[in-house]
Amino acid sequence: MKKNVIKKFILYILILIIIIPVIINILMFLHIFPVKGEVDTWVSSLSSIWGAIIGGVVSGVLTLIGVQLTIKHNNELKKREEYPEKIFRLETVTDFLDKSNDEFEMLLAMDFGEKVNVFFVIDDNYQIIKTHKYYLFTDKLLETINKDIVYVDSKCYRIFFDTRRKINDLYQELMWDSEYALFEFTQDLIGEHAKKGIELFDIEWSTLALNEKQELELSNIKKNLYKNERKYIFHQSEIVKDMYYQLTDHYLKLIKEIDY
């Protein structure tokens, strides 16, 4: 139970302790309802009533405080018992992220160019396809982390959720220009050959003949694609690295909180 709730409860009780005897006294002396017995007897009885109320309230407050302390103590014991598993799972996640950071470094050390396809390739219909390595470093990476991080605590999961959101938004931020450029290129290419009466539904568009201007345009699109791909991998590695540092800091705090 929160402290402010207890304070309000005690305040309300104190107000009732003061108001109820006063109301009884006023009703009695104003003769709003008949009173049996002597007035002096009622006056002396009020002190007894007041004392009983105060005693009951004090007893109730002490009981409430005792229950709260017991709950708090039990929660601390439960929290302490959960520490080893939390730390183990967090260690598993940070170790995995540490290895992932090394793998990102290896990717960034590669000589990028049109002959090197890492995360994205252009298929035979001039569309950007995400490679197996892309899913390995995005969906598979997040899936592996989620298996353990969800059992640590809400702070760790908020860090994970924020990281997942950033990674999901990264493609739209960095690769959309290349995807749209390819879309415009294919529309012009298809439109040109459609005018010639060529059937385009059952063929691969990469088999269509390109003129010099189209070849130059496609070459520039590919160069821009791989340039954006390198940016994508770099930014994703920074996002993963930031999550690693945040979780490592939280791991050290959990270690400090352990009190056996």
Score class of each variant (00 low, 15 high):
30 L>T: 15
201 F>D: 12
148 D>Y: 13
249 D>R: 13
213 K>L: 06
230 R>S: 00
22 V>F: 14
117 N>A: 09
79 K>F: 14
10 I>L: 08
231 K>L: 12
157 Y>L: 10
51 G>T: 08
252 L>W: 07
152 V>T: 13
252 L>D: 14
180 Y>D: 11
246 Q>I: 03
186 T>M: 08
126 Y>M: 02
252 L>K: 15
70 T>Y: 12
112 F>H: 07
51 G>F: 06
203 I>Y: 04
212 E>A: 06
25 N>D: 02
127 Q>A: 11
246 Q>L: 11
81 E>T: 05
59 S>E: 00
82 E>H: 03
135 Y>N: 15
121 V>A: 13
206 S>L: 01
163 T>R: 03
1 M>W: 08
174 L>N: 10
54 I>D: 05
141 L>Y: 11
48 S>C: 01
23 I>N: 01
214 Q>I: 08
249 D>N: 10
21 P>K: 07
46 L>V: 01
37 G>C: 04
118 V>A: 09
2 K>W: 01
30 L>A: 09
164 R>G: 06
147 K>P: 00
85 E>G: 00
207 T>Y: 02
2 K>T: 02
168 N>G: 04
126 Y>N: 09
239 I>Q: 03
76 E>S: 13
7 K>M: 09
188 D>F: 01
93 V>E: 06
181 A>G: 00
155 K>G: 02
